[in-house]
Design a protein around this nucleic acid. Sequence first.
RNA 1: GCCAGGGUGGGGUAGUUGGUCAUCCUAGGGGACUGUGGAUCCCCCGACCCGGGUUCGAGUCUCGGCCCUGGCCCCA
Length: 410
Amino acid sequence: MLQKPRGTRDFLPDEMEQRREVEGTMRQIAGTWGYREVCTPEFEELELFTIRSGDGIIQEMYAFEDKGGRKLALRPEITAPVLRLYVNEGKTLPKPLRWFYFADCFRYERPQKGRYRQFWQFGIELIGVDSPMAEAEVILLARDLLTACDISFSIHIGHLSFMRSLLSGLDPDEQKKIRMFLDKKDTEGLGAYLSSMGMEDLLERLTALAESRRLDDVFAITGDLQDQDRIEELFSILDGSGLEYTLDPGIARGLDYYTGMVFEIFAENLGAENQVLGGGTYSLAHLFGGEETPSCGFAIGFDRVMVARGERGPVSSTVAGVAFTPEGRDWAITVAGAFREAGIRTELVLSGKSLGNQISHIARSADYALIIGERECELRKVTVKNLRTGTQDMLLLTDAIREVSGSESC
RNA sequence: GCCAGGGUGGGGUAGUUGGUCAUCCUAGGGGACUGUGGAUCCCCCGACCCGGGUUCGAGUCUCGGCCCUGGCCCCA
């Protein structure tokens, strides 16, 4: 038997309805903040993704050549494509641009809990504005989105300037290595590495920085920073907004294109892959041939949000089943059409068996049975049987629709 | 790429130290039931992940692969 490819999933209607409901919530929230949807191709030129990260990540991508010999890749993320889109077509639009996307991405990685080879991201990009207010907006929007999705989470906010100030004398490779140790909270590894480089003196300050949870403590370690005022303003806005967060100077993010504020959000019940959102301030447009354009944004791991929500009951809607006799067939089709026009999910029984049999069938999954036989047909009426209460009435079509649509779904 | 634990009808399961090609539940389909409720009764469908090896004989032991689950690495 054929199987689906490793790391991919099928979704049955119950699950799709839940996913669409959460997706709709995210779209709705983003919309109220003024963010509008963009869509980019499922695949892009490979170079779009290697230009910044190097050829190493080809290993983790679905990269291929098309029949024309073009080197392409299924998108492993969507920020770069969106910024490519911006450079191609968005440069003349009035700034700032508030864009969101919801789409699937592909990475050739070992599947595990909350990690698949095809996965969905909901993300936003705020392009062309460079200010603490912009950064605060993005963080607050992230908070609103995840709150609306009804999950428990914690927000960790950092800033790359903190670490940079301590590492300013080192070359980029050394900085990167040190950031990795800190990101993993591997103090021993960091100590060993620093010793080997003859920089033992940095260890204490670095670990103290990574553990700092108050801005004053951070600045006491780093000394005055060039963008200190700006950082203070950002956190002042966040504090003033009532946001609950943890200051986390240890956040390094794997991505090189971040330039300032970085933040990550973690959810509960997720195992090893518990990060549901990551983002920050970055500069990417100039890499794709555009002008230097400050931006910030984030991406939500949609599938992880679904896992974090846990088991939920099915998304409910009122269901009407139509049982009919041969004499009532044409009227039944008319009635079903009118119910659907009123927005009610209405399913004709297709078996053609006895009414009793049809009603039995309907009662397994529907809230109402619409019974249409010779009598209803002659009177141009419909018998509405409420399957929860057992009561039934023969009603005119408009009254029948009102009766069903006026009910709460079960 | 690495480690651990797993793969028996669609879902969930039983299967002793190898020995009737396999249990039970559930779901699904059909029938009885002809204008009224998920009931009941009867029937049916349907599985040992794939391949090699050991053996008279493999669901059971062994090796490889595939896939699943969790973790490592990585996480743009």
